[in-house]
Structure formats: C-alpha cells, structure tokens
C-alpha cells in the first residue's frame, strides 16, 4: 500500500459523520434518557423521604416501636390467648395463660392498688381452676403443686402491694383490698379445704413414716426439701383459709350489728 493510498483511506475515516437525522434522533434519545433519570430520581427521593421519616420516627422513639411490636404480637396471638384463658393446669395452653396473658395483665397494673387487685383476682382464678379440676376428677398432686405455687406467688404480690397501699393511701384502703379478697375466698372454702386436706394427708402419711424410727437428721436432702415445700404450701393454703374464715366472721359481726 503506498502512502497516498493510506492517506486517502484515513481521509475516508475522517469523513465519517452522523447524518442530520441521525444526530437529531440521538439528541432525542439522550433527552429521553435524561428525563427518565430525573423521573427516577424524583420517585426515589419521595420514597426515601417517606422511608427516612418512618425510620426516624421508629429510631427516635424506641418505646413506641416496642409497644407497637408488642401490640402486633398480642393482636396476632389474640385467638391463642383467648383460647388459653379457658385452659386448666396440665393443658397445652396453660403456660400461655399464666406466663403471657396474666403477665401482660400484671404489667398493665401500674399502681400498688391495681397490682393488689390483680393479685387478688388471680388468686381467685387459681381456685376456680382447682374447682374445675376437682369437678372433672383431675386434681392430682402435680396440678395441686402448680396451683399452690401460683397461689404462693399471688399471695406474696398481694401482701407486698397491700403494704404499699397502707403506707401511701392509709390503712382503710388496704383493709378494703384485704376484705375484697377475703370475701371472694369465702366462696372457695370447700376447694381450699380440699387442697389443705390432701396436703395434711400427705404430711400425716409422712409423719407415720417418721414414727417408724426415721430421725430427721437421717433423712435424705431431697426428702427434707419436699417436707419444706409441703409445709410451705400448707402454710399458704392455711393462710387463705384463715382469710376466708375471717371474712365469714366479719359477715356474722355485720349481721349482728344490723340486728
């Protein structure tokens, strides 16, 4: 290839250009692409402003977010928790009732007075359960243990909060709370007797064993622990029985006063 030929060919490359139409068409396409970019940006900005606002709201108020999630959780499990309300010790949903539903109820009670009221309500609930089980003939040792344990917990809560009420709102309000529970307990005397009776039986049978010559010091640690638990539960039941009794006495006194 000679030099001139080469120069000529290079000139051909140099002469290449876009036609007027091609140029206009290209400019149009570029404008479209830019307009699409702007549109995308606008949409993105709107979305990001919204999401940023929303996320800021959440970050700014973690408590609101926590309460919101809890509400969603509670609402979504409303069916389960409602079903759990009807459950009895030994049922599959019973832990939901005591550990979820009642915990929520307790946490919503903010003042000592409200807390005492809830504890009182739960005490009665446990006794209702015991009654139901008794009716069905399903009140065995394990279930009694569950109920007594819960009764103990409610009793502690009750005492603690009644003390608080007495300190801050006066003895009268505290007595009123106590009376309320006593009055309700009165209706459950029978089941309390049943719970106490059974316990006494088991203690009695153990004391029979004691007389067989086994000294306390010779007892195995597990046995001592069980003894303690039994006597402790017995104490709780006894306390509740006394409350019920006190109430009936009060009732009698009131009757006498009226007469």
């Amino acid at each position: 290839m000679n030099k001139d030929r080469f120069e000529k060919l290079i000139a051909v490359f140099k002469s290449q250009s876009l036609s007027k139409d091609e140029k206009e068409q290209m400019l149009k396409s570029i404008r479209y692409a830019i307009a699409a970019d702007d549109l995308k940006k606008e949409t993105f900005q709107k979305v990001s402003i919204f999401s940023r606002f929303f996320s800021l709201q959440i970050v700014a108020n973690k408590r609101v977010f926590a309460a919101f999630s809890l509400m969603v959780l509670v609402l979504s499990s409303a069916g389960i928790s409602k079903a759990a309300e009807q459950s009895l010790p030994g049922d599959f949903l019973y832990p939901v009732k005591t550990k979820v539903n009642e915990k929520i109820k307790t946490s919503f009670a903010s003042t000592p007075q409200q807390k005492a009221e809830v504890a009182s309500e739960l005490t009665i609930k446990r006794l209702d359960e015991a009654e139901a089980l008794l009716e069905q003939g399903k009140l065995d040792e394990v279930k009694k243990e569950v109920i007594t344990k819960n009764l103990e917990k409610h009793n502690e809560e009750m005492k603690k909060n009644v003390n608080e009420v007495s300190k801050h709102l006066g003895a009268n309000t505290a007595t009123e709370l106590d009376d309320q529970l006593d009055l309700s307990l009165e209706e459950h005397v029978q089941v309390l007797d049943k719970l106490a009776e059974e316990k006494e039986d088991s203690v009695a049978s153990e004391s029979v064993e004691d007389t067989k010559g086994l000294e306390d010091s010779e007892k195995k640690p597990e046995e001592l622990k069980r003894d303690f638990k039994t006597s402790h539960s017995k104490k709780i039941i006894k306390e509740l029985q006394q409350r019920a009794e006190r109430s009936s006495h009060k009732g009698l006194e009131r009757e006498e006063e009226r007469e």
Partner: peptide, 13 residues
C-alpha cells in the same frame, strides 16, 4: 452535543 457528537462518533467508529 452539536460540537462534539461527530468527533466522538468518528472516534468510536
């Protein structure tokens, strides 16, 4: 665009 479209096109071509 009008100034550089052709040169850029030629360069690419």
């Amino acid at each position: 665009y009008n100034e550089h479209a052709d040169p850029i096109f030629r360069y690419c071509f």
